[in-house]
Design a protein around this nucleic acid. Structure first.
Lengths: 227, 227
DNA sequence: CCTTTGCATTTTGAATACAATACACAGTAT
DNA sequence: ATACTGTGTATTGTATTCAAAATGCAAAGG
């Protein structure tokens, strides 16, 4: 008699566990850009030996979150302004592609859900709740990428997002920039509703390009202010 | 008196060495898609211990060239038709972006050099030398990406190219497809010469999309023929 | 006082040793 | 015969050990 088990036991491998934990530490700022990643200390804190930790460091290095300097240890990647300027167009191209694909693959309900998120953001914008807006905005863009139904695209998008986020380049918006972003979202959602892939892609490219320019300008102002 | 050394000694780290070597083995087919990567045997052949080899495997895993199955060893990634269908649009979007950027950054000489490559390909096409054409074609596209002057873009492009190449999805072209590819290259070069970023991007997207469709069709025919 | 050099210490890199898991195959029962 | 189970073997995963390189610091020299 065959016995059916409802749930398979899945022990997450230690490697994946360590990788996830290090990613989190970088994402939440426990490990700051430029900071050294001491192998012995970290392995000790995690209760593991250096071997699996080092393997995880290689993975994070390949993802661009760490810089592995031979014989000199790993460091949380520091992105120069130039490198940020390289990454933004790439993530823009990927999101544009996602929008184009989504026009073909997304269901009406999916797009409606995206509009809901947009309306939520509009409300958050209206009441000036930037923290909530940023969270919803991230969900909005992540959802859009999901709608493309392309796993590889999703992987690369998330990887890039983590790199940019780790560099602390997700900044508060100036009021005018914020207004414009909301207006652009409106047009993006409209293009998706119209299944206009060409426009959706173009709008996303422009939206990301503008967002990048705003972020770079704000970063510049911030660094000026520090002097 | 300060002594100036013309060239810094750089011993490539063992890790990088192993990674490069494994990449080559996958690229040239020494390691075939689906094949298992036995740690002990490989480490022995390379004259190293399993530790640095395993670290290299993690890197290749993060790049998508290997699939690391916990407790069950690494396998050279096998791309299903669906996964190939996911990767082609991504590489297309990246090349399109490269073309757009190149319109702004490339010098006239750079573009002229690209046209030379195109003319070379045209000659190779005329005399039916497919091997030479494929090699020049790869150079052409790689050069185009270089012209964008965006290091991160090049890294991601090369990574994707390696994944597709490793899956043995660079196929011989049908005559009609080949004719069309040459014609598309002509238009791409013209758009670059005219510094028409919008057109160049669009042409690249279409070119890659068509190339992908051709490749998928040829692969289907090939698998049919095997039965 | 600043730079350079030598040495002790720390940290990283690689090999080895050990443990845990998966695999192959033979034996057994149905 | 087939499917299950148990056992030995091979392979992967992790810890430990040893070697090599980098770092910090103090002493020597300009």
């Amino acid at each position: 008699m065959a016995v059916h088990v409802t749930q398979t036991i899945h022990r997450k491998s230690l490697h994946d566990e360590i990788v996830a934990r290090l990613r989190t530490m970088i994402e939440d700022g426990t490990l700051q850009p430029g900071q050294k990643v001491p192998e012995q200390a970290l392995a000790g804190q995690m209760g593991i030996s250096r071997t699996p930790l080092r393997e995880a460091l290689k993975t994070l290095g390949a993802e661009g979150l760490l810089v592995l300097r031979p014989n000199r240890g790993a460091v949380v990647a520091v992105l120069t302004e130039a490198e940020i300027g390289e990454l933004f167009p790439i993530i823009g191209a990927l999101e544009a592609l996602a929008a184009e694909l989504a026009c073909a693959t997304a269901s009406a309900e999916d797009i409606a859900a995206l509009r809901d998120l947009h309306e939520t953001m509009r409300a958050e914008h209206a009441r000036g709740d930037e923290v909530a807006y940023r969270r919803t905005n991230r969900t909005f863009h992540a959802r859009l990428v999901d709608l493309a139904d392309n796993g590889a695209l999703r992987d690369y998008y998330e990887q890039l997002h983590r790199r940019i986020h780790a560099a602390r380049f997700i900044l508060s918006k100036a009021p005018a920039d914020w207004d414009r972003a909301v207006a652009e979202h409106e047009r993006i959602v409209c293009a998706l509703e119209a299944r206009d892939a060409q426009s959706a892609g173009q709008l996303l490219r422009e939206h990301l390009s503008v967002t990048a320019a705003d972020a770079m300008r704000r970063a510049l102002e911030r660094s000026r202010a520090e002097e």
